[in-house]
Each structure stands twice: as structure tokens, then as C-alpha cells.
């Protein structure tokens, strides 16, 4: 069995009287796509925010490759190899594709000048073009074009490529197919498979169960701040998953799902 790249044990997080996470646990193995499903308010986005460094957990343990870690800030998460891609918030629309790809890790000349160091514009353009080519989206896109001129699907692909570029071990996709057209959705899903084949682990948050069946290896379902079910995609079906999400009669479903 592949190694656990990311392991969450009994995470809890409360905002005042709201218990957003109650003993949430899940595992993510090397080179697999895991889907995180759940209704609105189930705690999916809180869970993601604790891993990406936006919220700090109240208790529980996060481990990366078997090593317990503390994540205090987005920077900590990135340094641990965890990249989170949100629906709209991951790119700066006024910057070029190349500048977005290397935002925060710009190649510079005369590095001793600190933040005043000149950008290595040639290297920036070369690396960006090479990256776009490697991930197979270079045909239409110019690395100097501002992100504002791209479609939603293209933006998602750019954000995912950036995470791959910095060899993230774990790529978290927060509702990557929201607001995308059919064609673009297929593009992003295909891209997710390529990311997995390149050896990255993907945690995929979505509302759309159909997308899950196309790309995911395993499914975790959250309800009221808890991870209530873990399913292997190959061994389950759409209806079963749907009823677990909505909390339909659980006893009838025991055959298909291994409950925690």
C-alpha cells in the first residue's frame, strides 16, 4: 500500500458555539485523488482552511509523510508541500500568466538586493513557457497575457500548474469546477488525472458527485463537522454516495460503505 502523504487525526475547530470540525480524520496516499464530499455547512471548507494555514486547529494532529506538523500560516503549508487552489482567489487577474506562476518565488538577478532585486524577466518568461508546454496548455496561451483575459478553466489550469511546478506533494482543489462550462470542466478533470499520474496527491472538494466518479480513487463524506464515511470509488455507486451525503437511512447502506 502506498504511503500516507497527509494524515488528519481527530481535528476539531470551533468558532464560538459553532463546532465546525468534530473529530475529523482522513488520509491521503501518494499518487491518488481523494474526493471530499458533503452538503453546505458540513465542514469541508473549514477542514481545507486548517490544512492550508488559514485557521489553526483547536486539537488533533496533522501529519505529513508520517511526521507530525504544525501549520500556522499559508507559508507553512506551502513549505510542507501543500498547495491549495481556491475557486477565484488563487491568481492576481492584473498580472501576466508568467508573473502569477512565480508570484512569491520570482527568479531574480542580484538577489542580495532583497525585495528591490530586479526580476530575471528572460528566465521568468522561459520557465513560464516551459511549464505551460509541459502541462499541455501552451498552444493557446501567451505567458505575457494578463490572467484577466483568461477563461475560468484556463485560470484553474494555470493555478494547478503552479502547484505542480513547485512539486507540491498535496494539491487541494476547492470546488475547481464551479462556474465552468462543460468543455472546460472536462479539461480540468483531465488535468487532475494528469496531475495524479505525475505523482502528486490530490484532495478534491466538490458538490458534484459525477465529477468524483470520473477522477477520484477514494471518497470521504463529511456531515456536521465529522468525516462520516470512507468509500472506495471502484466499490460503490452514485446512489449510495448520494444517500450518505444527505444522511438517508444509514443502516441500509452498510453493505456499500465502510463507516468510521
Amino acid at each position: 500500500m502506498a504511503e500516507d502523504v497527509l494524515r488528519l487525526d481527530n481535528l476539531t475547530k470551533s468558532f464560538g458555539n459553532v463546532h465546525a470540525l468534530v473529530n475529523a480524520s482522513l488520509t491521503l496516499r501518494e499518487g491518488e485523488v481523494v474526493a471530499l464530499l458533503g452538503d453546505n455547512g458540513a465542514g469541508k471548507s473549514t477542514l481545507i482552511k486548517t490544512i492550508s494555514g488559514v485557521h489553526r486547529i483547536d486539537s488533533g494532529q496533522i501529519s505529513v509523510r508520517g511526521r507530525p506538523v504544525t501549520i500556522r500560516s499559508p507559508r507553512d503549508a506551502i513549505e510542507l508541500g501543500i498547495e491549495t487552489i481556491h475557486q477565484d482567489t488563487s491568481l492576481a487577474p492584473d498580472l501576466s500568466i508568467a508573473r502569477n506562476l512565480f508570484l512569491g518565488r520570482e527568479p531574480v538577478l542580484f538577489g542580495f538586493l532583497g525585495v528591490f532585486a530586479p526580476l530575471d524577466l528572460g528566465e521568468l518568461k522561459r520557465s513560464a513557457s516551459a511549464l505551460l508546454k509541459r502541462v499541455g496548455i501552451s498552444k493557446k496561451l501567451d505567458a505575457d497575457a494578463p490572467v484577466r483575459t483568461l477563461s475560468g478553466g484556463e485560470r484553474q489550469s494555470i493555478a494547478i500548474s503552479r502547484a505542480m511546478q513547485f512539486s507540491a506533494k498535496v494539491i487541494i482543489l476547492d470546488e475547481p469546477t464551479n462556474n465552468l462550462g462543460v468543455e472546460e470542466t472536462h479539461g480540468v478533470l483531465r488535468f487532475v488525472k494528469e496531475v495524479r499520474d505525475a505523482g502528486h496527491s490530490v484532495l478534491f472538494i466538490t458538490h458534484n458527485i459525477h465529477h468524483v466518479f470520473q477522477v477520484a480513487d477514494r471518497i470521504f463524506v463529511m456531515r456536521r463537522g465529522e468525516v462520516t464515511a470512507e468509500l472506495v470509488v471502484a466499490e460503490t455507486d452514485l446512489l449510495t454516495v448520494e444517500s450518505i451525503i444527505t444522511g438517508a437511512d444509514m443502516s441500509e447502506l452498510m453493505g456499500g460503505a465502510r463507516h468510521k
Binding site: I78, A92, R99, L103, V115, L119
Partner: peptide, 21 residues
């Protein structure tokens, strides 16, 4: 400069810039 890239990114989408450190 590197700083200029940060300045534009912060004004364009602050949370994206912060997420990149």
C-alpha cells in the same frame, strides 16, 4: 523589481498574494 510584482499582486488580489507568502 520583485517588490513591484508584489505591489501589483496585492492590489489585484490580496488574498492570492498572501497565499503565495
Amino acid at each position: 523589481s520583485k517588490l513591484g510584482n508584489w505591489i501589483s499582486a496585492i492590489g489585484s488580489n490580496r488574498s492570492a498574494a498572501v497565499a503565495r507568502g
